[in-house]
Simulated scan of single mutants.
Amino acid sequence: MRKTGKIHFVHHLEKRHVPANLGDWICCPYYYFPDFFGKYTCLIHSDWAILWHEIERDDVVVFGGGGLLDNSDELNAVLNRLLECCDNVIIWGAGTHKYNQDNIFGKKTASVPIQFDRAVLVGIRDYKHPSNLPYLPCVSCLNDAFSSQPEDSEIKRNVGTIKSALEKTFAVSNTPSFVTNAEPIGSVANYIRSSNIILVSSYHGAFWSMLLGRKAILPSSRLGVDKYKYFRHPVGFYDKSVFDEQQLMSIASDIPDIPNFLEESRDLTSAFFTKCREFIEDRLGAGSQDETLQIISKRNAQLEFTVIDMWNEIRRLNGRLTTLEKLK
């Protein structure tokens, strides 16, 4: 008899009214192996809106990518709950995101330990991390944007800047040129190609820059978060608050060149996928072409926030009515 079961993909999707973070949106392994995963019934969950009743013990859960590890005690508890309610949890390219006590974001340092020993396969995007967990680049390295060669690929600037769309202000002022991480991946990749070096505040912006052979420099304030300390290749840190091209170029000159990172990352990802495929076929069977993808928890989460918005509006209107009553 053919085995049955679902595959659940858990990664980060922003809440409503929040600018998109491209790195989080394109770091789900499902998108890069559609011929294989499309044979199974798959559900894509956001880490903050999981449909727990859909996850059965014999299903498969793929957790990652994005900075989901040690991001908060609440998120660690989510992963631990997944590890406890499902026997087949794969951690794929997730990264540490632990806030140090001196971080500028006012975030608390996570203290709830993750039960990594319960996972059946683990690969984290942090290179030579103190946890000694196996290194695995973010699956977004497989995106076609890094393979295509645009007709216009000439260098247009010494220093390009990639800003996080989630930040109201960038740590370095007066940058002469920039894109945000909410723009299409093709646009971001082309911008990186046309820059000699990249000044960037997001993890994925630095990662993608290195995939394309560009040296990455981050504001030194980013050292308050662990995820910026364990890139596969060294990055630079800039401690000024005002753009200084000469200083940035000087920092870049001390960063080693980045050889064949795209090829290496794709080879490691393909090897990990082979392990996952063999494991899933052993647990769930070979799959069939007539299964369909169900993207339902994101829709459920959007509905939830719509209800919250409606309730807040009702409370606001009720407050206005109460004020009018008092004025009578």
Rank of each mutant, 00 (worst) to 15 (best):
Y203H: 08
F178C: 14
D226F: 01
I162V: 11
H53E: 15
I44L: 14
E54M: 12
E304M: 02
T175E: 14
E154R: 14
I314P: 04
N181F: 02
T323R: 09
V89F: 04
V139I: 13
Q101P: 11
G64D: 01
K298C: 07
N76V: 03
K227P: 01
G66C: 03
G285V: 12
A171S: 13
V112R: 02
A119S: 04
V60Q: 06
K328P: 00
N300T: 09
E264A: 08
M210T: 07
T180Q: 08
M1L: 11
G205T: 02
H11Y: 04
G67L: 05
F116W: 07
Y99D: 06
Y31G: 06
E278S: 10
E56H: 15
V200N: 10
L321H: 10
K227Y: 02
F305L: 02
K3H: 13
P256A: 15
G67Y: 06
E278H: 12
D309P: 03
P134R: 00
V188Y: 02
Y191D: 06
E56K: 15
K168A: 05
G65T: 04
E56L: 15
R81N: 13
G67H: 05
M1E: 12
H8S: 03
I251H: 08
S173H: 15
W311H: 12
Q246A: 14
D226G: 08
E245A: 05
R232F: 09
V172W: 07
S194Y: 10
L51H: 08
A77P: 04
D239T: 12
I296C: 09
V61E: 05
N76H: 07
C141F: 09
I251L: 14
T323K: 12
A165N: 10
F36E: 11
A145F: 07
V200C: 14
F178A: 13
D24P: 07
A165Q: 09
N103K: 02
I258S: 02
